[in-house]
């Protein structure tokens, strides 16, 4: 049974011109690290939250979200609780926003255990100490009594990760877990997440807008644009030879740290907001390869590439496009 299987998930909000998610299909196996990249508003967080059965209020939802085979779309409270307390959990971008500033770290960690598992204070505290040690914090007994403001951003993110591990999940959803942190702290948190993922055989969904970070940390990566998955590939291949014009655009917009320094080729225009829609490919207005009459009628489906069946792209012209120049420019 696949750990996470999102199948043609479409989420529509009243008043929006296009769906927030449009037929999103994504798979994540046990022990796999899968990246989800894309720009602000592309639907990454909505996708991740769907794996906890959290969908925007008032949304019209079709499709399925299967977590270890249980469908969370329209699921009852008992099933949602079962998944959220024992199968899947989430690490958010900003630990300061995710942890109540006026409660002690100990309360943050022990309360869910006492509420969901009915543990005593002693039992919950013993477990919290284990968790704080597991995320590499130096002095667990002291941290239990500390308040969030007494910890640095990096330490607090470790606390958030400890909280996410409390229910012994098999699926960890990480929504920009390091975006609020310094680069070297980012490395520490990713080292921690990678270590935990391997030691516990976790499936991990890593959301980031940093395509290089996804390439460096994931087995496989999905690229989202305007609520749709536009490309999926093993990380190394996605980075070395992006096929979808949007993925190419992302790489052409990212200044390289090494190698020749050419003028960046930004994608013109701006990402499509929820107030805009397009009859055909959502990327057509910004795409240098768009072909009138072909790209502006219907939306391209996400299909396996003939030349590489483990990759897929949603672009009418993907088979005929030249191999991207970024490949040569990058190590």
């Amino acid at each position: 049974m696949t750990l996470l299987e999102i199948d043609a998930l479409t989420v529509e909000l009243p008043g929006a011109a296009r769906p927030v998610l449009d037929a999103v299909t994504l798979r994540l196996a046990a022990g796999e690290v899968v990246g989800l990249v894309g720009e602000s508003g592309s639907g990454k967080s909505v996708t991740a939250r769907s794996a906890l059965g959290l969908l925007p209020a008032r949304a019209r939802v079709t499709g399925r979200v299967l977590v270890e085979g249980r469908d969370l779309v329209g699921a009852d409270a008992a099933r949602l609780r079962e998944v959220r307390t024992g199968v899947a959990s989430m690490v958010f971008q900003d630990p300061r926003a995710g942890i109540n500033p006026v409660r002690r770290i100990g309360d943050f960690l022990t309360e869910p255990l006492r509420l969901t598992k009915g543990w005593s204070r002693r039992e919950a505290e013993a477990r919290a100490l284990e968790l704080l040690a597991a995320v590499g914090l130096p002095d667990p007994p002291r941290h239990l009594r500390q308040y969030p403001h007494q910890l640095s951003g990096g330490m607090l993110q470790r606390v958030m990760i400890a909280g996410a591990l409390a229910g012994e999940p098999r699926l960890l959803l990480c929504d920009e877990p390091t975006t609020a942190l310094d680069v070297s702290t980012q490395a520490e948190i990713l080292a921690l997440l990678g270590g935990l993922q391997r030691a516990r055989g976790l499936g991990m969904l890593l959301i980031t807008h940093d395509i290089e970070l996804a390439a460096a940390s994931c087995d496989r990566v999905y690229v989202m644009y305007a609520g749709r998955i536009v490309e999926q590939a093993p990380a190394a291949e996605l980075f070395g030879s992006p096929r979808h014009p949007y993925t190419r655009g992302l790489l052409g917009s990212t200044p390289p740290l090494t190698g020749p320094l050419e003028r960046l080729r930004p994608v013109p225009g701006a990402p499509m907001s929820l107030a805009e829609s397009a009859p055909g490919c959502a990327f057509a207005a910004r795409c240098t390869f768009a072909e009138p009459g072909r790209c502006d009628h219907s939306a391209p489906e996400l299909l396996p590439l003939t030349a590489a069946p483990d990759r897929s792209a949603a672009c009418f012209r993907v088979a005929e496009l030249p191999n991207p120049a970024v490949t040569e420019a990058r190590p």
């Binding site: 490395a187 990713l190 290089e212 460096a216 980075f239």
Partner: peptide
């Protein structure tokens, strides 16, 4: 050197960076 090594790239080893930090 630490800042530079902290930039994610293929073959990146966050464990070593964490130790060096």
């Amino acid at each position: 050197r630490l800042l530079l090594d902290s930039v994610p790239r293929p073959g990146w080893d966050p464990e070593t960076i964490a130790r060096r930090r």
